[in-house]
Design a protein around this nucleic acid. Structure first.
Lengths: 231, 231
DNA sequence: CGGCATCCGGGAAGATACTG
DNA sequence: CAGTATCTTCCCGGATGCCG
């Protein structure tokens, strides 16, 4: 006998008209915002999400995807045959969460306890470019930088003081880095010497390495906040 | 024998270099962001916080304040005698969370499940003015609107297409409303008729009521998002 | 294997009572 | 008034197992 899905959400809500409080009802549960982050650059499969959300368990991921789908943030789709696999993607409205990442990330980067050397996902590093890009430093520079992370291609295009970061074709890239996100973070935010990374073997450059050297200079983390202690 | 406070936080962290993930480590626990919200307009006492965070329990509020203090977001201070009471306030860096509220609130207000008629705190309604103010509608209007919520004075000043909302003096206000936040939400966002609210008795106007009628027109909730269902 | 249900241990949240 | 102590409830995280 099949149990009816009596889910009957009692669900811990704030019951508050405040917009921010309702936002927390939608994406405030543990892992929820990071699931959305991983979908920010396009549809993903369950297993891919699980792999890049280090530490999440399968059942929690299932619950979050269900919750986000019920809220209208995420939508589930089955790709047409012969693929026939299920993927999860953001709705149009879900995609509009992006500014929340930008401002939250920019604020938290100033935290004294923020450690940019920790592991980072491919999507995170791409979004960080949007967050930390300094148009003043880029000036009129124009370039296409490609990244290959674990068989997947990502591209960052800079032109007219604007930056676009997404998944996609990198045939036209000025330079392509075959590496992993953490090494990119070390180069861009840690300003690690590029030849050292190359020597370590987790870094292969295709194309004009000088372009990437300029690229690195367009980004920098904000200054750490200075704290007043409680007396 | 007194137990040493071996707090030794193992603490559930994401362990992720992503700025947003670290932001969640700081303010992602349940209630944390709403505690910050209640401090956004200046120092508050423990009991005041508890009263306006409907549903929080004393021990959770204690834990959040401790955590936020440890993170450098909140600071604890004892007012000079004869008051000699303890208050909590945001640090300079903590105050910089404001944009997170603005964008999160603006995004969540478009949620199909957002209900603006729920209870709302005094601080929330004041912050909502910053979030939902439409400079185009205000044009060159200039006014000072005062609110008295439960013995505390708040002021909103509009001038040159800009809005400022804070606690403070309302002697120079063009109009003052003695009421409660939910009634203001009904008037401003629900566009409830003002005389109806006055008739219900939870609404006293001092000064020029016409000024408030214009004020209401400067704010409106964003359109609800239209959702694509999962097939 | 991908997606999801189920069971279980630990820990955080919620409610209430109690103390200085 | 400002928390602390205690108890219960529920969520999170990990493991296992089912089924297409």
């Amino acid at each position: 006998m099949k149990l009816e899905k009596v889910t009957a959400k009692p669900a811990r809500r704030y019951h508050d008209a405040c917009g921010a409080a309702h936002g927390l009802d939608l994406i405030g549960e543990r892992w929820a915002l990071l699931v959305v982050r991983e979908l920010m650059l396009g549809p993903r499969r369950f297993g891919d999400l699980r792999k890049d959300l280090h530490g999440i368990s399968a059942n929690v991921l299932t619950q979050r995807l269900e919750g986000l789908e019920a809220s209208g943030v995420v939508r589930r789709r089955r790709l047409p045959p012969p693929a026939s696999v299920q993927v999860y993607e953001l709705t149009d409205w879900g995609r509009e969460i992006e500014p929340v990442f930008i401002v939250l990330g920019r604020w938290a980067a100033r935290s004294p306890s923020h450690d940019p050397t920790l592991p980072i996902s491919a999507v995170s590093i791409m979004l960080s470019f949007k967050t930390m890009f300094d148009p003043a430093r880029a000036g009129e520079a124009a370039m296409v930088v490609g990244f290959v992370f674990d068989e997947t291609d990502f591209r960052v295009e800079i032109a007219q003081g604007r930056l676009e970061a997404r998944r996609g074709e990198i045939k036209d890239a000025d330079v392509v880095l075959v590496t992993h996100p953490q090494a990119v973070a070390a180069a861009v935010y840690g300003k690690a010497p590029l030849n050292a990374l190359e020597a370590q073997g987790d870094w292969v450059v295709r194309g004009d390495a000088r372009v990437f050297e300029r690229f690195v200079d367009f980004f920098h983390l904000p200054e750490k906040a200075v704290l007043e202690a409680s007396p």
